[in-house]
């Protein structure tokens, strides 16, 4: 992202200190999700919007009672939507649910096997939502041309996938991710596909502004330990990016001087 102060992470006029965004799905229970999120240091937390269970699970705590909108930036998603209209409808319900909070994660899916996004439907929905004053963080493929198009529409962040959602395969196309980052003037956040800490570091070393993940933490054998690892990986990757890595060479380059040898 072309930002005069490289170390400020800003989305829709809010400044965040953590570049790790996390989901709340797939945990054993809400308490485990909360412990992992606390350990991750994440400030932006995604949620899904679904039907309330009428007359059931009276004692089940409401997610937003545990993960409070007073403490976290809640990012409602449109997961499970396969057309623009249901995604728009979901965003409108989310905004009402969250008392006018207009930040949303837009995803319009195309295919159940890959969960790849339907770009034409996503473009259509993004345009409608931006016109309706939503602040749209958009899930997309790693196509640099499409990423730019979402920025031009007015999305506040563009979120290319590293690999399919929940696959844990890591960054499959670092060249495209780098290309998206180099051409962007909104935050670029890798969303989906991260499997372990090094994947998150690679995304950050490529210059991404942040990483959004869920399964990599929730499906780790020890989610809370992994949440801490991800926090460090994001920070390490970011610092390595800012530091600027050494050039790669085909052959060795001795670290100790040749001069002054006594042998």
């Amino acid at each position: 992202m072309a930002n005069s102060d490289k170390n400020i992470f800003k989305i829709a006029d809010s400044i965040y200190s953590s570049r790790l965004l996390v989901g709340t799905g797939k945990y054993k229970n809400t308490q485990e999700a909360k412990s992992a999120i606390d350990k991750s240091g994440a400030e932006i937390v995604t949620v899904a919007i679904r039907r309330t269970n009428i007359g059931q699970e009276k004692n089940e705590p409401n997610l937003l009672d545990i993960i409070s909108p007073d403490k976290f930036t809640i990012l409602p998603n449109t997961a499970g939507c396969y057309d623009a209209d249901s995604a728009i409808r979901t965003c409108q319900l989310a905004r009402e649910l969250l008392d006018g909070h207009a930040l949303v994660k837009l995803e319009v899916l195309a295919d159940k096997k890959t969960l790849f996004p339907d770009i034409t439907q996503t473009l259509y929905a993004a345009e409608k939502l931006v016109n309706d004053n939503f602040k749209v963080m958009v899930y997309t493929t790693d196509d640099p041309i499409i990423a730019k198009r979402f920025e031009e529409i007015g999305c506040v962040a563009v979120m290319p996938l590293a690999a399919p959602i929940g696959s844990g395969l890591g960054i499959q196309n670092p060249y495209n991710i780098r290309s998206i980052v180099e051409n962007a003037s909104v935050p670029i956040i890798v969303d989906a596909g991260v499997g372990t800490a090094s994947d998150a570091s690679i995304a950050m070393e490529l210059g991404c502004d942040g990483v959004l993940m869920n399964t990599a933490i929730a499906e780790a054998k020890n989610p809370i330990l992994m949440a801490g690892a991800m926090k460090k990986a994001i920070q390490a990757g970011r610092e390595a990016y800012l530091a600027g890595r050494m050039p790669k060479r085909a052959y060795a380059s001795a670290s100790s001087p040749i001069d002054g040898r006594f042998f």
Binding site: A48, E96, G166
Partner: peptide, 26 residues
């Protein structure tokens, strides 16, 4: 239906009503 209209808004026979909440998701 905005919260401010809950007391005035009447339900009609056959209405399709959806009540949603936030749950865990990525």
């Amino acid at each position: 239906i905005p919260r401010s209209q809950y007391s005035n808004k009447r339900i009609n026979s056959g209405d399709k009503i959806e009540i949603v909440q936030a749950i865990g998701g990525g």
